[in-house]
Amino acid sequence: MTAPDVSAPQPGLSVGPTSEFSLFFRVKPGESVSLRNALQALQDTPGYRPGDYGMAIQTIHEARFVLFDDDTRLAFITSFDGPWDAYMEDFFTSGPTLALFDLIFSHVEGYDGLPDVAAVRSFVLGAEQSAAAYARNYGGTVKEIRKAQRVNSAFQQVLDHPEAAEILEHPAMQPLLDEAGD
């Protein structure tokens, strides 16, 4: 039996198909205002704006940056679907996402920036801390949840269609109608 390599970065905790990923940094002295501006610019970027769902990395459930300790520390906390290695590959090969993070990381200690992706990878993985506990309040992958939303939207259209009344009276439709009433 081979012993695991404990020196290599390990994935965070998982619940079903979803894992957590958390990074913690120290903000460079005097950079907190610039960092807040960079975070606001990220928040205003298509795919990251509230209500936009077009993130470059399609397996992300949610992601957040948190400034704490009087804006001297920065946390990046996210959860994602699929294998940890695949998420890391997506993160480090997603040009637009990596460029946005480059702007943010430029305000934290120890970051040398792009174009050296290997150095960025080492920097990011060096800041990783697995959660001590992790829970989710819903099942399903991002792909499954988006499909369920599309199916629900289509079903709502059927419910609103005046010619659907006869079909909706069939006993086989009762479980869907019961759920639609919630």
Score class of each variant (00 low, 15 high):
residue 52 D to Y: 09
residue 73 R to V: 02
residue 103 L to T: 15
residue 165 A to Y: 13
residue 122 S to A: 15
residue 123 F to Y: 12
residue 118 A to N: 14
residue 43 Q to F: 15
residue 95 G to K: 06
residue 56 A to C: 13
residue 99 A to Q: 05
residue 108 V to T: 12
residue 107 H to S: 05
residue 134 Y to L: 07
residue 101 F to C: 08
residue 161 H to F: 00
residue 58 Q to S: 12
residue 105 F to P: 04
residue 161 H to P: 12
residue 18 T to G: 10
residue 92 F to C: 08
residue 100 L to A: 03
residue 95 G to H: 07
residue 161 H to T: 08
residue 59 T to N: 01
residue 106 S to Y: 01
residue 85 D to W: 06
residue 60 I to T: 02
residue 120 V to T: 04
residue 143 K to N: 14
residue 80 F to P: 12
residue 158 V to R: 05
residue 83 P to C: 05
residue 85 D to M: 09
residue 79 S to N: 15
residue 37 N to W: 13
residue 13 L to T: 02
residue 26 R to N: 10
residue 107 H to M: 10
residue 178 D to A: 07
residue 145 I to E: 11
residue 103 L to C: 15
residue 127 A to W: 00
residue 100 L to W: 02
residue 60 I to A: 02
residue 90 D to P: 06
residue 73 R to T: 01
residue 45 T to I: 04
residue 181 G to F: 09
residue 145 I to H: 09
residue 62 E to F: 15
residue 39 L to Q: 02
residue 1 M to S: 15
residue 176 L to Y: 04
residue 13 L to S: 03
residue 39 L to S: 07
residue 88 M to N: 06
residue 48 Y to R: 01
residue 161 H to Q: 11
residue 112 D to S: 12
residue 153 S to D: 14
residue 65 F to Q: 03
residue 102 D to K: 07
residue 127 A to V: 00
residue 44 D to M: 09
residue 33 V to F: 06
residue 7 S to E: 11
residue 123 F to N: 08
residue 11 P to T: 00
residue 58 Q to A: 13
residue 75 A to E: 02
residue 37 N to A: 12
residue 37 N to Y: 11
residue 140 G to S: 04
residue 69 D to T: 15
residue 113 G to W: 00
residue 58 Q to V: 07
residue 113 G to T: 00
residue 19 S to F: 00
residue 56 A to Y: 01
residue 58 Q to E: 10
residue 66 V to D: 09
residue 143 K to Q: 15
residue 168 L to C: 06
residue 91 F to T: 00
residue 98 L to D: 01
residue 51 G to Y: 01
residue 169 E to S: 11
residue 158 V to N: 05
residue 165 A to E: 09
residue 94 S to P: 09
residue 28 K to A: 09
residue 169 E to P: 07
residue 181 G to Q: 06
residue 115 P to C: 06
residue 1 M to D: 15
residue 177 L to V: 13
residue 88 M to P: 00
residue 164 A to W: 02
residue 17 P to W: 13
residue 109 E to Q: 02
residue 64 R to S: 10
residue 37 N to T: 07
